[in-house]
């Protein structure tokens, strides 16, 4: 048996790590030099050590955690609402000709309009605070979910449906055992797009509807006191959470469903 010596494995691992870290080090050094010698005053352009220090401080005293958690709760509620509405609409549009004719034009016109543009309207309709925030997130989520679910339902192979009917499947069974799994890859794409959109809208809308807490609110509030280090720490958390949602949640979900069923290879 041939075994790679541990030292070789370690060094190659360390090298890969160093390679990955190198660009960030370069950027950090450039940032630091600019902060120290550039034309921007230090309140506006904090040095790297200050950013790291306030990140550690905000993690330590729980401020970041509380705000991130609030934002995540809003995300889950809003995204959940939007996903349910979107899937229901998409399935309706895919299964009934009548619903398709009526809803598809509305959905395809509504889809490209930035959801955030509705924020002031939602504030007028639903007041300030959490309600318009969550509803807008749901609204923004529903469109891509509906469009993709619709495509997915229509992409279910005719022959599968006929085979199931031939074998005596009732309408309900047909839906649960054939249509739903068959359209799942598209549905998951829609949910993924919807979640990405929901996340983007949520961070911005938290700046507009004067909510109590949340990452967007934190960044926006920090502007008043010129706390640029807090802002950058908040932006970093937003990036990390966004990446985690994409990588951890959806790739897992795909792994357990469509990839396992052999409908998609990864």
């Amino acid at each position: 048996m041939f075994r790679v010596p541990a030292t070789v494995w370690l060094t190659s691992r360390a090298r890969a790590g160093a390679e990955l870290a190198f660009p960030f080090v370069v950027v950090a050094v450039a940032w630091q030099l600019f902060a120290m010698y550039g034309p921007m005053p230090p309140q506006l352009f904090p040095s790297v050590d200050k950013i790291v220090a306030s990140f550690v401080r905000l993690v330590g005293n729980g401020v970041l955690a509380v705000n991130a958690l609030t934002t995540l709760i809003r995300l889950v509620v809003g995204f959940g609402l939007g996903a349910i509405v979107g899937v229901v609409l998409g399935v309706l549009m895919g299964r009934s000709r009548w619903a398709e004719d009526l809803l598809v034009p509305l959905v395809s016109v509504g889809n490209p309009i930035p959801g955030l543009a509705y924020a002031p309207l939602f504030v007028i309709w639903f007041g300030l605070g959490d309600v318009p925030c969550v509803l807008l997130v749901g609204f923004a989520t529903a469109f891509p979910v509906a469009v993709n679910t619709w495509t997915g339902v229509r992409a279910v192979k005719e022959i599968w449906i006929r085979a199931a009917i031939g074998m005596g499947a009732a309408e309900r069974q047909l839906f649960r055992k054939v249509v739903l799994p068959g359209s799942l890859p598209y549905m998951l794409t829609g949910l993924r797009l919807g979640l990405a959109r929901a996340w983007r809208v949520l961070v911005a809308v938290e700046m507009l509807t004067s909510v109590r807490q949340g990452l967007g609110w934190m960044i926006f509030g920090a502007r008043e006191f010129l706390n640029t280090d807090v802002m950058l720490a908040g932006i970093a958390v937003i990036g990390i959470v966004g990446l985690a949602l994409e990588k951890v949640v959806f790739e897992r979900l795909e792994q357990y469903t469509v990839v396992r069923w052999g409908m998609m290879t990864r």
Partner: peptide, 15 residues
Amino acid sequence: SPIPSLAWVPLFILW
């Protein structure tokens, strides 16, 4: 890339 551009708005206003 995954950081929403609008998260940068307050900072860009200051800058």
